[in-house]
Design a protein around this nucleic acid. Sequence first.
DNA 1: GGAATAGTGTCTCTGAGACACTATCCT
DNA 2: AGGATAGTGTCTCAGAGACACTATTCC
Lengths: 293, 293
Amino acid sequence: MSRRLPGGRTAERDEAGNFPPFAVTVDLVVLTIRSGRLAVLLVERGEEPYLGSWALPGGFVRPDENLDAAALRELVEETQISGLPGHLEQLRTYGDPGRDPRMRVVSIAYVAFVPQLPDPVPGTDAARARWWAVDDLATVLSPRALSRKDALPLAFDHVSILSDAVERVAAKLEYTPLATAFCPSEFTIGELSQVYEAVWGVPPSDRANFRRKVLATAGFAEPVDEGTQRLTGGLGRPAQLFRVGPALELSPPLRRPHEARRRQPAGAPERAVRARPARGRPAGRTFDRDQPK
Amino acid sequence: MSRRLPGGRTAERDEAGNFPPFAVTVDLVVLTIRSGRLAVLLVERGEEPYLGSWALPGGFVRPDENLDAAALRELVEETQISGLPGHLEQLRTYGDPGRDPRMRVVSIAYVAFVPQLPDPVPGTDAARARWWAVDDLATVLSPRALSRKDALPLAFDHVSILSDAVERVAAKLEYTPLATAFCPSEFTIGELSQVYEAVWGVPPSDRANFRRKVLATAGFAEPVDEGTQRLTGGLGRPAQLFRVGPALELSPPLRRPHEARRRQPAGAPERAVRARPARGRPAGRTFDRDQPK
DNA sequence: GGAATAGTGTCTCTGAGACACTATCCT
DNA sequence: AGGATAGTGTCTCAGAGACACTATTCC
């Protein structure tokens, strides 16, 4: 039997007819809001390479499970939550040769948005896990974290993964109701606003307008019938409580305040593959419709 | 030496201490516009499984190349273009067990946007490749393609990949200048509009407004100094020619006409991991801030 | 009362859509 | 002239931002 595995025709295999050996893992970027700051769950490495460094939780994909299931399993193992409160989605796949010095590892990264959880319990499997404020890390992306001398470096290429994840969540808050994934089941508009502030780094422009915009999308935040409650630290007028509704996207989106939107998208300026600079015109085919000049 | 490979702590390995064997491939969704329709490059399979079916081009990632390089190599092999006119970016990774009946294959899918190319030349490596109009295929996503009895089925899970790619390009045209990746180096506003129409399935709402919006983003379409040209089939007033500028995003975005935006996002309604229905409350930890009820 | 937070009213400016009109080519 | 496509003017309405004001709590 031939080894032409992929759907296409140009499958490559080594001299012996075997496919190259790859390890396939999932890495998790578990994000939450703690003390008004965006935080990520990291685990301390207990061996080389990067012994003592902090890394994203992750693990091998099992032979019989799909990628989402592997990510979900890792999430449950690390956070002890079950039933997935919050949100989990595939982020991007990282597979540069050399990203792990030991061998070729292709890792499918996932992002999870979870509500505030208790600290990892010592004695459990997650004993050496802890939450880190994202802007205390040497994240490429966050302008707040740049040039901090005490910034914590991460193992492997996990800084890139984290940066991509932070950009993803910042973008997702603009046009989806996923900010609620960071909130408890009942929340106030003020708490929702704090999520946006923690993720974007700047508060939504105007409190009053923010409230109106949130309420403008039906099925984003739905009022709990009765009560009100003060969660603001016990001060001020009690706030209405809301639950998350069925909406899948924000119909007038909540755009990030100006700056980020006006030139570069704040984070990675688009992740496109660049060819090495072509000298002169492309040597191969040319366009049908190119007019002679 | 231990085999705890991933950054995290919960690496799994089999009884013998080895990681499970995976094949890693890239699959390409090469999109272009042909005769005013969105088209994708497919190759005919010459062996089982899915012998005779059409599939996305793809191939193994080589041990020493990164994922982007593998995708770029496949693109060049299939289209004969070099220097990457157009755009190439990672789409998503597909790795369900059983997606290839022969063994476990994890495939990183890429989308490419390319300008119109000549038909594949018989006799070359790409002889059994051809362009298919996307809505002639049994794409899950495209409303136009649904319920076509003569729709062409694709091999493996390539329908899912194609659907995701089409949704990606439709979304990208809203807030990036990537429509120009489908155009020749000099193009008219009318041609740009045709790209939007082919991808979205509906023309931009108003010709005049479309023109103004395109021109509103500096660095999207920049006028070629001199000339004008008629490309419209030799009829009507000659159109100004434009070149692509340096803009990375459309500052007032070009939103898809209403319908798609008002409820579901036209395509896959968000690709989040769903946990199996939790019976009762989550058994594990509960939220810090859950108020007793 | 004063500080702090929640909620409402309303004005202005920009951008999106609709549509009428002019310009320049072809046959 | 008539059809076809390119380009401009302008009106209306909705959404975004700014800001003033009221409401309700704790101290």
